[in-house]
Design a binder for these strands. Structure first.
Lengths: 336, 336
DNA sequence: TTTTTTTGTGCAATCGATATCGGGAACGTT
DNA sequence: AACGTTCCCGATATCGATTGCACAAAAAAA
């Protein structure tokens, strides 16, 4: 691929590279005649400045990274969608990375983001990230970062999350109001922020209605499918829940799967409420009641904060925490 | 962020940058003593070579691009997953772009891939791409490219696709064998390769069983949701199909939606077979018979070919076309 | 001892674009 | 006539890393 450089233009027009550079950038020091000459020629040969050379010189790339646990997950792909939308509008490019829930891969992704001189990064933590010192180190170095959805507890940083507490509270309250008393909660690993917040919402709703908290009804799941199904089945057999409130797309589906395989009836025997962004929730049988997160907006807002941070004056940039509302969509799986 | 350069090391050790560079690359010309000195120091200060500087020099980036119509689409996110997996194993990084089905955005993405000096690109065409001249121009320039899933007809290039013909044939034959005669086909825009191949498979099955082809039963859909539902409803009312075979995730779901809203029974009145990678197909009500594509493998194989192409000798690289098998998963929506 | 070879390093150019500095020409001012 | 401004533009260093070439010192061969 033949690439045109500023040097080629200079040679062709018998000018110096500096003049060409300035003409292209519209510098006032260049006469209009010369500018026109250069611009016309550049247009003619379809000149495109080499972003790599620019990055090298300016030590920035007008690109941001997005690190998520898994791309093939409706919640994250929607969030990426929102993020990409805003980034593009503001003139940034996006590199997407996935950690596959591994803290090691997460660190490798971050290293890559740094060495590639990306201008900042959006990140949702992996399910196995426990040690935040590396993140704190980066934040101290003032590297622009925004956490979204799965954020590090106790770390001062920009965060964009859904109101997980309220979402879980609403879901649980809804189940209680429809007469359920033994409400199970199938959720993500306890180290994740979202897990704790949702658990807190769940507990708060129980407390409000004077239902004692029973820890046997709460199951923290890793990301291994087969175990999930088994655990849910066991829970149903041993604890006789009359409702299950699950904390993610995957878990909601596994739940449906497990319950159906036991020939237990939803919602008559066990009601189900998911916490998910699946478009198909209403097509499931029975259609599933869900707490819906504004995934797209989460991504969009997070990028806005990130780019503000990149472009803004570091000094007067306080860390921001943004919390977007969830909404409870009531469908058949929690009918009375 | 303080970044260590080769120059810093040189200064600290009283060597020249060239010596440091060679020592780090393990050149034979450097004495073992010096090598050890440099390596130890580099390790100590956590030196990482600046990939941007390398890219500038070598005019390549060890990164590839993936351009898809939409990330938040199960098929594509799975394909990306496979692609990323292989790329990582082979030491490449991945930048993901989405076209949102716009040919203009597609061209912009390609421009970006080129100007960023990515080493190659994987691409699945947008639903509005009609003009292949730009692609052909790139291919002539020997820019490494692999098309997957939605590939340009009549263009000589590397292609990785599912066996769409066979998949569609199997689905249609299955519907015929279960007694259906008026089989509708809801599909993607006619300019896409996958549309034509699936249509051909559908027609071939009809022909084999002596069922006349009725073009009123075939509907080509754009990507606008609302119109899709309306069209399907209209089709059912006017043409009385006893089965619908749909060509994608989105369409399959829209189909379910539309049929349910008409209170038509699946499969008694209308059977449904989808062409999709949705994990939830078995959880729908009734569970949906589908033709499944090996999305992950499609992505993985495509990247393998791409990287072979990037690294291999251009001269003896013939264009490859790889076709992976689909499989028909029979479920309740096509029961007799 | 002298010449040749080997070994280990440094210098400088290079990749593409920009910014600093400074030079030459044209014009105005005393 | 001498000097200062202003306007345009060019030479060059720079970003970080690599590499061909030169070259010195040490080792080997004559």
């Amino acid at each position: 691929m033949e690439t045109i450089t500023i040097k080629d233009i200079a040679k062709a027009l018998n000018l110096s590279t500096s003049t060409v550079s300035r003409a292209i950038r519209g510098s006032y020091e260049i006469s209009d005649a010369t500018k026109k000459l250069v611009l016309d020629y550049a247009e003619k040969v379809n000149y495109r400045p080499n972003p790599i050379a620019l990055s090298l010189r300016e030590n920035k790339s007008r690109s941001i990274g997005i690190i998520v646990p898994e791309i093939a997950n409706n919640f994250f792909s929607n969030a990426i969608n929102g993020a990409e939308d805003v980034a593009q509008k503001r003139g940034y490019h996006v590199m997407i990375f996935q950690t596959r829930e591994s803290d090691l891969k997460e660190k490798a992704c971050l290293e890559h983001v740094l060495s590639r001189k990306l201008d900042g990064v959006l990140i949702s933590l992996s399910g196995s990230t426990q040690d935040y010192t590396y993140l704190e180190h980066l934040l101290k170095g003032e590297f622009p970062m925004v956490f979204f959805d799965r954020v590090p507890d106790g770390v001062k940083a920009n965060k964009v999350v859904a109101n997980n507490f309220q979402g879980a509270f609403d879901a649980t309250e809804h189940l209680i109001k429809t007469g359920r008393k033994r409400i199970g909660h199938i959720t993500s690993p306890p180290i994740l922020s979202i897990t704790q917040e949702r658990l807190a919402g769940y507990k708060a709703a129980l407390e409000k209605y004077n239902i004692p908290f029973n820890e046997n009804l709460v199951k923290f799941m890793e990301f291994d499918y087969s175990i999930i199904a088994e655990t849910i089945k066991k829970l149903i057999k041993e604890e006789n829940p009359d409702a299950l409130f699950t904390a993610s797309d995957r878990l909601a589906l596994s739940c449906y799967d497990a319950i159906k395989s036991l020939n237990v009836k939803i919602p008559e025997e066990v009601a189900v409420v998911g916490f998910t962004n699946l478009k198909v929730a209403n097509l499931l049988s029975p259609s599933m009641t869900t707490v819906t997160q504004p995934a797209f907006d989460l991504g969009a807002e997070a990028v806005n904060i990130l780019i503000d941070n990149i472009e803004g004056n570091k000094r007067d940039m306080a860390f921001k925490k943004l919390e977007l509302p969830t909404s409870l969509e009531i469908r058949a799986s929690s009918k009375i």
